[in-house]
Structures are given as structure tokens and as C-alpha cells.
């Protein structure tokens, strides 16, 4: 799609010019891996110049080192992981604890999985699934480097995923058009792509929801703006499952509610835009399975 046409489409959601411009110049963020160090010790230890964020373990990197963040002792020791601040929101909102069993249904390369492991203090159990066999090695490498010992990987199709265990928490960070994370993605995108991937996103969401125990919670997320990939799959889940309820996402500043055309309950969802939040574009919905 041509940029002009894309901006015209995006303007139905937000200030398209500001959004696209911010996306081309996004900051780098790191997550301190609290499985290996404390935030306090790490800040004493590192030579990086950092700025705090809304998450106590996440920092904006003021001036990334010349060789890249992946080429530092900080990274090699597994004390940090490079991860967009927006990408840290799904685990933060889900808030898993050491008592949980968690399904991460689209886990590779493992940024959110390892963040969940840290929030769970390496206790409980995580099933880190990804349907793409080629990405399992990247997932395993990150689990090892970051020291997540409460996770097991699996390589099943998320759209038809079934497991004998019923999980207390689930993450469904589904494949998407990446318009919020990749500034050039619009060039290879059109609305038909979003319409065509929407049924797959719904199927993955449904599998994750069906894998939840009663009273369990899941977070559905994408890094894109199209409602066909965001509100639409969630609305279908809500309409087909009377036990599914959207829970309010609170405490994340500079975000917007979901689109109300899909129902007033979408005021509980969150849309994240780069020019307002300062990191990648995201969509987040927190869904509870009532008993």
C-alpha cells in the first residue's frame, strides 16, 4: 500500500502522521532479568545510561552502545533482554505469579515467556508453544540465556491446540500484520491481509481460552492497528462464549480504549500508539473465563 493511502486508513484510529513519524524513530528498551540480578544491583553494575519507565524492571536506553545492546556483558550474562516497552505490557497486565500454570500459545522468540518466568520467580510452570518449528530454537536459546527453568517448549498448531491440563493463565500474542512494530510493514500490507488472518487469530484465541480453567485469565495481543485483527476476534469470542468477560486494563497511561463499535465492553481493552506511548503500537485485551 502507498504511504498516502495507508495514512488515510490509519487516520480513522489516530493522528496518522504523528503515529507513523514516531514509529520511524522508536527508542530502545531493556528489561532487567530479575531471575539473575536485582534491578538495584544491575543499575550499580551496568555502564549503560538508562531512564526509568512505568515498569520498575524496564528502562529506556539513552544512548545504545556502538556495537549494539546484544554485544554487551549485560546481554551475555543474561542480566538484560532487549524488548520494546509495549511488548512488555501483555505479561505485565496478565500478572502471573508463582502459583500459576501458564500457556504461552505463540511463544517464540520468548521475550514475553521469559518476562512471565521472571514475574513467576522461576516457579510454577509455563508451556511455551509455537507452531513454527524453525523458531523453537530461538525460543530455547532465550530460555537458556535468561535462565527460565519453569518452562517447557512445545511445537503444536495454536489454532487447534488442546492439552489435558487446564491453565490458570494464558498469553495469546498472535501472528499479525505488525503495522505497529515494523515501520515499513504497510508497504506489503492491504486490508485484505488483515481480513484473511483474522480467522486464524480467532482460532488461536479460542484455543487459548478453551485451555483455561474456570476463573482463569488470558491476555490477547497484537502489534497492529487493524480492528479486523484486534477487536473483531475478541468480539467473536465474547459472542460465542457467555463465560468470557473483558476485564478492564488499568494503570497504563497514554493508551486508548478499544473501538466501541464492537460493544461498550471494549472500553476495557487498550490501544497503544507510538506517538503517545513512546514505544511500538499494540492492542491488548484481558479476558476472564468465569466459572
Amino acid at each position: 500500500m502507498q504511504k498516502e493511502e495507508y495514512l488515510s486508513w490509519l487516520s480513522k484510529y489516530t493522528d496518522a502522521e504523528a503515529c507513523a513519524s514516531a514509529q520511524e524513530d522508536l527508542s530502545y528498551f531493556i528489561r532487567v532479568n530479575t531471575l539473575k540480578t536485582s534491578v538495584e544491583n544491575y543499575l550499580d553494575w551496568t555502564g549503560l545510561e538508562l531512564e526509568p519507565t512505568l515498569l520498575p524492571y524496564a528502562f529506556k536506553v539513552i544512548s545504545p552502545p556502538e556495537g549494539g545492546l546484544g554485544n554487551t556483558l549485560d546481554f551475555a550474562t543474561g542480566c538484560i533482554h532487549t524488548q520494546a516497552l509495549s511488548s512488555m505490557l501483555p505479561p505485565h497486565i496478565l500478572g502471573p505469579s508463582r502459583e500459576d500454570t501458564l500457556l504461552d500459545i505463540c511463544a517464540a522468540p520468548g521475550s514475553k515467556t521469559t518476562q512471565c518466568a521472571a514475574l513467576m520467580q522461576n516457579r510454577g510452570a509455563i508451556l511455551a508453544n509455537d507452531s513454527n518449528r524453525g523458531r523453537i530454537s530461538a525460543l530455547s536459546d532465550n530460555l537458556e540465556r535468561l535462565g527460565a527453568i519453569n518452562a517447557s517448549t512445545s511445537n503444536r498448531n495454536g489454532a487447534i491446540f488442546a492439552h489435558p491440563h487446564k491453565f490458570s493463565k494464558a498469553l495469546a500474542d498472535v501472528p499479525c500484520s505488525s503495522l505497529g512494530s515494523n515501520p515499513g510493514a504497510f508497504e506489503h500490507w492491504n486490508l485484505n491481509f488483515s481480513k484473511s488472518i483474522s480467522p486464524l487469530q480467532f482460532s488461536i484465541l479460542r484455543s487459548a481460552f478453551d485451555s483455561l480453567q474456570e476463573g482463569g485469565t488470558l491476555v490477547y495481543s497484537t502489534c497492529t492497528y487493524a480492528e479486523e485483527e484486534n477487536e473483531k476476534p475478541v468480539a467473536r469470542l465474547l459472542s460465542e462464549n457467555p463465560r468470557a468477560r473483558l476485564e478492564k486494563i488499568e494503570g497504563i497511561p497514554n493508551t486508548h480504549p478499544g473501538i466501541s463499535d464492537y460493544g461498550s465492553e471494549f472500553r476495557n481493552a487498550a490501544r497503544v500508539y507510538p506517538h503517545e506511548f513512546g514505544s511500538e503500537g499494540f492492542f491488548l485485551a484481558k479476558i476472564k473465563k468465569e466459572g
Binding site: N122, R123, A125, L127, G147, N150, A151, S152
Partner: peptide, 19 residues
């Protein structure tokens, strides 16, 4: 391999934990 005690008791056919 090392793993959390909760993962050790978790039903899965894939390798648990990390080396």
C-alpha cells in the same frame, strides 16, 4: 536439566527446563 518443582510435576512430553 534443571526445572522448577512445579514444572517437574507438570504433564508434558517435551523436555522440561534448561541444561
Amino acid at each position: 536439566r534443571m526445572m522448577s518443582s512445579e514444572l517437574q510435576n507438570f504433564q508434558t512430553t517435551t523436555p522440561k527446563g534448561i541444561p
